[in-house]
């Protein structure tokens, strides 16, 4: 029993590290990308500074990255991990492909949240003489905040799933544990424990995300 606790404890910690940092980095990559996708889109779709070429190029890149099966993307990105961190195996090294894999998803989530903002409100902000930057940071983002929070929640939950997959190719964490002990060594108890911990993590993130989003809405 104590062995399971030790195994699951270490793996949980690794998963938390992976999910936390890849969330941060995927947001750092995806947030500007999402904002850019939104503001460069055609005017009738809510773009505040339509830029056709940029919008299409970014859109294509995002689509390509999103259609890559995650495992393949990880393998393709190993050299990048090696370049950045000096290694391509281990929890830290996994954060690189995880962040990059999640970034296009984040970008689309952010884009669609920002596009939900009422066009009339943007028009009003513009008539008052807002610069584009003021529209983005003082209008679009605050107005879309509840949807943005839901989007981030969704991203974290996705990353928990991705991180479990990443485990299978040497990333460590709960997915790795489930494969190596649960599957390859027929340790159903370890497998079960790993799955339960992942389930609890997802549930906690979802509940917290919903709470924050709801409390933002209730203050309006």
């Amino acid at each position: 029993m104590s062995e399971i606790l030790r195994l699951v404890g270490t793996a949980t910690w690794q998963t938390l590290i992976m999910v936390f940092f890849s969330t941060v980095f995927s947001l750092l990559l995806g947030l500007p990308l999402g904002i850019l996708l939104c503001i460069s889109s055609p005017e009738d779709q809510g773009g505040i500074k339509p830029m056709k070429v940029l919008n299409e190029v970014l859109g294509r890149i995002v689509n390509v990255l999103r259609s890559f099966p995650f495992l393949i993307l990880m393998i393709v990105l190993f050299p990048l991990s090696r370049l950045l961190l000096g290694k391509s195996i281990g929890t830290a090294a996994t954060i690189v492909p995880l962040s990059i894999a999640a970034a296009p998803f984040v970008a689309r989530v952010i884009e669609s949240a920002l596009k939900e903002v009422d066009h009339g409100v943007i028009q009003a902000a513009r008539t008052m003489g807002s610069t584009n930057a003021q529209i983005v940071f003082k209008v679009l983002i605050p107005e879309a905040l509840p949807s943005l929070v839901s989007g981030v929640t969704l991203t974290i939950i996705n990353l928990i799933g991705y991180s479990a997959m990443a485990g299978t190719i040497g990333g460590g964490g709960l997915g790795d544990l489930a494969i190596r002990y649960g599957f390859q060594r027929w340790r159903t108890d370890v497998l079960l424990a790993a799955v339960i911990v992942i389930l609890i993590m997802v549930e906690i993130i979802q509940v917290i995300g919903n709470k924050i989003s709801a409390s933002l809405i209730s203050k309006r």
Binding site: D118, G120, V121, Q123, A124, A125, R126, T127, M128, G129, S130, T131, K138, V139, P142, E143, L145, R220
Partner: peptide, 28 residues
Amino acid sequence: IAQRRKIGMIFQNFNLFSSRTAGMNVAY
């Protein structure tokens, strides 16, 4: 932008910022 700041406009759907209180809307 400078010229727009000297124009006031109101709309059918009010177009207020829901993320701001009434006073903060006027402050914008």
